[in-house]
Write a protein that binds this DNA or RNA. Structure first.
Lengths: 201, 201, 201, 201
DNA sequence: AATGAATGAGCTTTCATTCAT
DNA sequence: GATGAATGAAAGCTCATTCAT
């Protein structure tokens, strides 16, 4: 890799990381591009070499970071000996919720703009070498491995995703209706119940 | 009510209604206070007599409008002869989703800032004479009427609320994972399953 | 006139006058709105209360100042006892050229954007109380007074206007093909010749 | 011509042609050097190897293109059997106006910065092998051929040039005071009248 | 000669807020 | 209470120019 190429990557990543910090700390509305470049130590014009605007860098961040959440959860799962499909999914859910609980800034960033629809559409774009498509690479493989022929597996996944995301957000950020640890078993029950609804007759 | 009093109310409501129109049409970020007062036909200074800022008027709007959604749904329910608790809840859910489907601007406004936590906390403030507290006035009464002693009724309601809100949003706005009409039966099944989980042993 | 009203007029005129000074001194391309408001002693936002942008203030200036040139020339004419139509026109031309020769900044500002087409179209708008429509108020009256029924009087006027404006500009700014005083008699001859072409058969 | 030499010429001309396209399409103020190099397919730095700035490339363009107008007109003239001096000039004028009418972008580019003064001064610089000096190579030869000893032939030419340029611009761009075809005979008459003024006694 | 990443001064424009009337 | 002219900080964005490669 040439010196220039190297430098470019450095600046690009510096901008991404800085933006994440500021977005999670102050929110995107209160973060200006001047803020970002100042903290990243690059000139203002440089920002526009890599990103269209604030919302461009945000969406790149969201996709990259949400991918990482799924990858991490999946890695952790592979080091357990859980075999049941439901329990696998619950493990992943718990793992992701724990990570978000540790990093509430990230949760806030992701939550506002990450629905199942957005995730599914964008997960196919690999922003970095290690981006993964959860729906295709992980979820569908898990279903295949389970040997079960679910009815409407995508709707099933979408409902679980929305339930977990939305309830998890409320629980972590507001402690409502109960704190995360208290919510988890209820979520697990609900997930099992939703999966059961989609088992073949 | 005096003439002055009358005039005050008029200006106040003009501001509220105009803000709703503009927020739903252009989003809150792209709506300025100048926009609001211009369209409302009052002077700029007048805005500050009634509201602290843009976010103040928004939160007042959200509470008022979400209340109305529940009131309308509940009124419609009272004109049916549905008696089963699950079916009542499903009726309310369908009714609200239909209204939001008709008014997607409102959905967008409400969605980002309306979680179970916010709703529960704010529903106790009556902004207008006809505001209603769904959780206390409607939901708890429905439970009482059902004669069932649910386990953790608030967690049950919260999960249903988050599942419906989040999935409904994706479905209405993006058509993902399926359009609203196709989603409804799946949501109904999921709601019944969640309720079942909370039936007394 | 109220105090506020008075103040408004003051600021508006301050902006106009300052803009003229700067445009003539540095050219419009090298004059920023910051420049204008700084020199005019008003806040930046104030500029936008009165003008859309730099080009809006320019066009208002052009119309106002070109009107004044014609008014001044006409006033001066009325204090002579010239009766012949051609000589009247030549007097006006000389007078205007002399004024522009004294104020080359104004000439530069006017020249690039003031054609017969623009002048005719805009002269009907009265930007200030004393704006005058040269074509309707002055020129047509002069024709009437002359008692002559010219062929195509508008084309005649347009050609004279363009010839004088364009040659005058070159002469004043570049001294080409000859300095103004040397050019005047040639222009006078050409004007008489053009007028002669439009005399009735 | 070596390969490198060849390549240089190619880049230079690519820049010139691209600049002309963009200037005529969007105006010089709205054309950036980035625009030019992007469309020309060369690197940004390369621009500065050949031109000082935007205005440098413009003035080179103006001279080159205005030369071509006169060359083309003169070539066309040589294929007619017009012998009279006035009619020759009128033919050239008509020819140039027709070309500019077909290419209004070029007209706009030329008009703002092309007075008799500029033309005369710059026409002596040969930017390309085929550049021609209208004043020296064409006009003075035409006068010689006519056998007439005009009074002040340069002033005569300058006035005709300014009259035609300025009236033609208004007519083509704004249709004022009349469209080009209607203007032509009036211009021809005016040209003949001006020439007549400069015939020897 | 040619490149194009990087710069940062400087631009236009918006807009929440104030306060004299 | 109601007004709306005035403010000026701060935003997003552009772009001519440089210079290491």
């Amino acid at each position: 890799m040439g010196k220039t190429e190297d430098n470019k990557k450095k600046k690009y990543e510096s901008l991404l990381n800085t933006a994440l910090e500021l977005f999670t700390a102050k929110g995107i509305n209160n973060t200006s591009i001047s803020d970002i470049v100042d903290h990243a130590g690059v000139a203002k014009g440089t920002f526009y070499l890599y990103f269209k605007d604030k919302y461009d860098i945000r969406s790149k961040l969201i996709m990259h970071r949400s991918s990482r959440l799924f990858i991490d959860a999946h890695k952790a799962l592979s080091q357990t000996d859980i075999t049941d499909f439901s329990e696998k999914l619950i493990f992943i859910v718990d793992h992701i919720l724990d990570e978000l609980n540790e990093n509430r800034g990230l949760l806030t960033l992701l939550y506002k703009d990450l629905s199942w629809a957005v995730l599914k559409k964008n997960m196919t774009i690999r922003h970095f070498d290690d981006d993964v498509n959860f729906y295709e690479d992980v979820y569908q493989k898990m279903i295949l491995d389970s040997g079960i022929e679910f009815k409407d597996p995508e709707i099933m996944m979408a409902m679980i995703f929305e339930l977990v995301g939305s309830s998890g957000y409320s629980s972590i950020i507001y402690g409502e209706p109960v704190p995360l640890e208290a919510l988890k078993p209820h979520l697990a029950d609900a997930i099992r119940a939703i999966i059961k609804l989609h088992l073949p007759a």
